[in-house]
Design a protein around this nucleic acid. Structure first.
Lengths: 274, 274
DNA sequence: CCAAAGCGTTTCATTATTTGAACCGATGTT
DNA sequence: AACATCGGTTCAAATAATGAAACGCTTTGG
């Protein structure tokens, strides 16, 4: 590992909870030599990535990160982080992968990618996704701000027989989404379309969008669901990372558990076939 | 100079104009060895400060900077102090209010707020504000560190016919700014935009940023200028206070005098109308 | 169509920088 | 008054950074 990397890794110890860190605390956190750590800190300070509180002598994030973040925001649109991921998601699942961004109570499609595996495909032409009737929407509702749910309660339009149109029904569904980590819309928006979605987070660490796979309902079975879920988790982790966010600890754990049990399930499935 | 600093300095070559930089271009920019530069870039990429475009092989700002900026804002909440003030400033003037922070020789936009009074509005899309051609910049130059002015002298880019492009010209303008307490850019950056700015101070009691009103030039007259100036002074006092700084005695006095004469002016104006 | 130039990347002997145990002085703490 | 902890410094030994050269690949130009 290069000196540069080791030094920069010090930055990762800062968080909103641990905003200022002194030399001694760094030494304890990193269990690395004090003099070395000290020189790293001074280098980072010289570059503006850190700054030192002149009275407490502790270090905190420096002003340079704002400049860099500004350049990033101005030059790398959210779409770019999504485009890197959707083709893989679509190809691995054989279905339509799409990502959307949460803009004040509505989910606006950002980009999508259709697999060429089957000739029967789902196409996405909607200008905005209903929160209560799509996999993406349910994921956003379940893990987003409570105000989002509140605003949605007032406009539960019916699209199909499977659409949840009253608040109680919706809340029951969201309980399941929160327990599983996946928003599932089984033909709740459009007949014949089965959607599974997961939330996306940005640097504010709140839900900033969703990524989902929309499948032709007749192709859905336990095995395809397992593949879709595992690919969705990977996609969400990647996109969230590129947006400067982090998957909340609890959700990440939930997903890990689900994926483990899924892989063991598909193992028994394969065994039972054999 | 430490290896760490040399590596991190590569980040400063990125800007909104130069969003992606390849190895060869870096080599030319830094006139440093190719292999060394290459290893720096890889280290920065490994830390997430950079990311590589997989097709063009060029590098751009990485997602980590967003996370770091979020921590910085949580640690040193500059945005919060500004957001409290900008709506009032925009609404009272009917124009675009914006604030920026000074980060090593550049003014980085922090937040802005547009009034809804008129349909013709100034929009702020600039990634960074030139110091010699904007109200904010002139305010920062006039009341900031001399080294800031020195650095600016070397890059006086022309934007319009009104841009001051030689040091003497700029110094003359700054004399006026220092005498009045207001940085005025009459279509010096963009045709049709009239900007007035004042400096902001933080706990170090040096210029830490600027707050400004950008108006549609045709709407500008003595009365609107009087309103803008008085609102700007109030805004700067509030933001500076929330940043833990103080307006320098001399400047505060200057503003008080100006506001008094302005209100008497507008009094005589109203009297002359009556 | 081949040659040349440009690109990112790897190699390896030389060299310079990093490393860390020990130390220092200041500031609390028992 | 002894002790612990803090940020910061020193210096010989060790290790990681360095850069010329070469490599394979793509693009460009004649």
């Amino acid at each position: 590992m290069s000196t540069v990397s080791k030094a920069i890794d010090l930055l990762s110890w800062f968080s909103t909870e641990r905003a200022e860190i002194g030399l001694a605390e760094f030494q304890r956190l990193t269990s690395r030599d004090k003099a070395t750590t000290y020189r790293y800190l001074r280098s980072l300070e010289a570059s503006g990535l850190l700054e030192q509180n002149p009275v407490t002598r502790t270090y905190r994030m420096g002003p340079a990160v704002l400049r860099f973040a500004h350049v990033r925001e101005a030059t790398v649109p959210r779409r770019a982080g999504v485009r890197m991921v959707l083709p893989q998601l679509a190809d691995a699942t054989g279905e339509l992968a799409h990502a959307s961004i949460l803009e004040s109570y509505t989910l606006v499609p950002l980009s999508d990618h259709a697999s060429t595996r089957y000739s029967a495909r789902v196409v996405l032409s909607e200008p905005e996704l209903p929160l209560h009737a799509t996999g993406s929407g349910l994921a956003a509702l379940a893990f987003g701000e409570p105000s989002l749910l509140k605003a949605t309660h007032r406009k539960l339009k019916r699209y199909t027989n499977n659409t949840a149109t009253n608040p109680k029904e919706l809340d029951a569904i969201l309980q399941i989404v929160r327990a599983t980590g996946f928003g599932v819309a089984d033909q709740a928006y459009e007949e014949g379309v089965y959607g599974i979605g997961v939330p996306l987070f940005d640097s504010s660490n709140t839900v900033a969008g969703a990524v989902a796979v929309a499948s032709v309902a007749t192709r859905i079975n336990d095995e395809t669901i397992a593949i879709i879920k595992s690919e969705l988790v990977a996609a969400s982790r990647q996109i969230t990372h590129s947006w400067g966010g982090e998957i909340p600890e609890a959700l990440d754990q939930l997903w890990s558990n689900t994926l483990n049990s899924l892989s063991s399930d598909s193992l028994t499935l394969r065994e039972s076939i054999a």
